[in-house]
Design a binder for these strands. Structure first.
Lengths: 224, 224
DNA sequence: CTAATTTTGTATCGAACGATACACATGTAG
DNA sequence: CTACATGTGTATCGTTCGATACAAAATTAG
């Protein structure tokens, strides 16, 4: 038995000619732009630069490839979620989350379509497993936010009558809605305007903030 | 030339055996539940109770049927939009709109899937005309809200520095986001909680309302 | 080296896709 | 009635779909 430079075992047989993450990134753009059912195997293999047998050997079938793409998508977004969850207070969590989503949704650098894969690639499909898988991935983010807000509430960083689940659900709904807008061509400025309005809804807005960050009301025509 | 009881001309030839709106309603549920590309012609003709030649004679092709379904969907939602736009002030517009969307999104009476056809049926497709058609229909609602808010601003029912376009975009994004939540199984109570938070963002919230409707802060755990 | 193992490229499978040809049914026009 | 026009049902078109069979290529194991 031989080992590579990472200490993992090298299997016998012909080695793979492609990098898993690279082909997943390419498949991601196809699913993102065309949706799960609109992405044909020919589209996928063309974009990935591999042939069908390689795809099926690596990912099982089309749904397996899609699920692998979703995991890869989460990994690419993990840094953002980590920064969001590391924010000092719930208001900063909300702001970093919505601003981060707005940034990702439009600032694609041509590598991906605008919007969010978890919203665009299959809310409705002939195979209900696909919308379900997407919903689970979205719910994962909502759960992380809710648990953060539950800790904030216990620590006194939210009013005692605040509802962490509702606040998390509000943020995720807002984010998903912004992604729908982005997929239809909304600009970064339009999304950031929406974010400013959305943050005005946050507990403590509209009054002098106890933390001293007295934000400008966000529904104004020309903030600043 | 003969005329029917509505005064319209009766064409020569064998008459249609189906009601256009009825078959469109049935096609709507298929597109809604399975998405544009996930809805096969066999699925559609089965649900509509007609054969392919009848479908093609009446609607041209699959995309033509889909566009007819979108028009039908708008017609079914027109009453809600009329009531929303007839509200006395912008805050009432926002509340009626979001509450109406929340109601429609979950209260389907088994006839349709939860959510919104304009969000679920094809944000991404191999044929880009479909997402574009959906975006136009969504933008139509946003435009109606924006024009209403522009009139409100001129009439002094909104602050002089309010941004009607941003407020309309915020409401539509919120509505679309709630529909995404609904499609994944959110309950009416969860959506209404989100609506309460969303309305707290509205200009004038957080202070004693000038109209005297001093709404309960909406991010509370147990409103009322 | 030979044997075993795994991936690759080509070529293609049966099923499902969107869309139609065509004969028959059912109406109006005169 | 005949002539014409339109819709319906069956049966099927060519294409594309997701998925594989198979043999050659490329590696490890001994």
């Amino acid at each position: 038995m031989r080992y590579n430079n990472m200490g993992t075992a090298v299997k016998a047989g012909r080695p793979r000619s492609f990098c898993t993450d690279t082909v997943l990134d390419r498949a991601m753009t196809v699913f993102w732009r065309q949706g799960y059912e609109g992405a044909s195997l020919a589209d996928l293999t063309d974009a990935m630069g591999i042939n069908p047998p390689s795809l099926y050997a690596a990912f099982g079938n089309k749904e397996g490839l899609f699920r692998a793409v979703l995991e890869r998508y989460d990994a690419l977004r993990q840094d953002l979620m980590n920064r969001v969850l590391a924010a000092p207070d719930p208001r900063a969590v909300a702001r970093l989350f919505l601003e981060g989503v707005a940034e990702f949704a439009v600032h694609t650098e041509g590598r991906t379509p605008p919007g969010c894969l978890l919203v665009q690639s299959g809310l409705s499909c002939s195979d209900a497993d696909i919308p379900e898988a997407l919903a689970e991935h979205r719910a994962e983010k909502e759960r992380a936010l809710r648990e953060r807000f539950e800790r904030d509430k216990k620590a006194g960083r939210l009013p005692t009558d605040a509802n962490p689940a509702t606040l998390a659900s509000y943020l995720v709904a807002m984010a998903n809605g912004m992604c729908v807008q982005a997929s239809a061509g909304a600009t970064a400025e339009q999304l950031h305007n929406i974010v400013e309005v959305a943050l005005a809804a946050w507990p403590g807005s509209g009054e002098t903030s106890p933390s001293g960050t007295n934000d400008e009301p966000s529904w104004r025509a020309h903030p600043g």
